[in-house]
Amino acid sequence: MDLIQVKDLCFSYSGEKGTLKHISLNVKKGNFVTIVGENGSGKSSLIKCILGLNKGYTGEIIKEEHIGYLPQKTEIQTNFPASIEEVVLSGTISNNPRSIFYKKEDKERAKNTMKKLGIYDIRKKCFADLSGGQQQRVLIARSLCATKSLIVLDEPTNGLDPNIAKQIYELLDKLKKEEDITILMVSHDIDRALNYADKVIELINGEITFDGIPANYKLGGAK
């Protein structure tokens, strides 16, 4: 079963780079899919089209309704006064969007997710005071509160040192295997991403130049 299907997607910002040309791809349930490519190849634009953040594309996108998204970090977050608990809980917002307060089931879900990811004991700590790796762990927890099936990550290991990056990949791998979470990730950390991915999609200048299993990609299926 496909959780995401993209058919003949074309998109461009008004006169800027990041243009996407006739993109077609699919993401199967239970897969770990990595999109690789240089800066400006259109990786982030593609993700944003899939999530509905970019409007004005042509083509067709069929997707799961609830997607947990882990965007790139913003400057605002660097000294934002928010506890881990508040950040994770905010992931449940789309479950009961009309409610004024968080429901009991939302709080329960946030609590269980924090326990699963080993951040429950530090839940009162300030998000901005955490290390980069811990912050990503918190944001993964938040994305898991928004979905039961599919998370989309935009360069989650950017700026992390290799050991910590490895831990993030291992965590994602574990979520895939134990919780049946499908993962779509953008990365330019190609070597490591290939070790965990079931499928690699390579973008160059807004076009797909490779779509297949990592073993074939390593053999030089592209470039």
Binding site: G52, L53, P71, T74, F80, E86, V87, P97, V152
Partner: peptide, 23 residues
């Protein structure tokens, strides 16, 4: 402010996540 408190937090903390969540 009270009615929109939850949403204001999500939108202020992470606008892209908020949009992806359908806000």
């Amino acid at each position: 402010f009270i009615v929109y408190y939850r949403k204001l937090f999500v939108v202020t903390f992470d606008e892209n996540f908020a949009k992806a969540s359908g806000l």
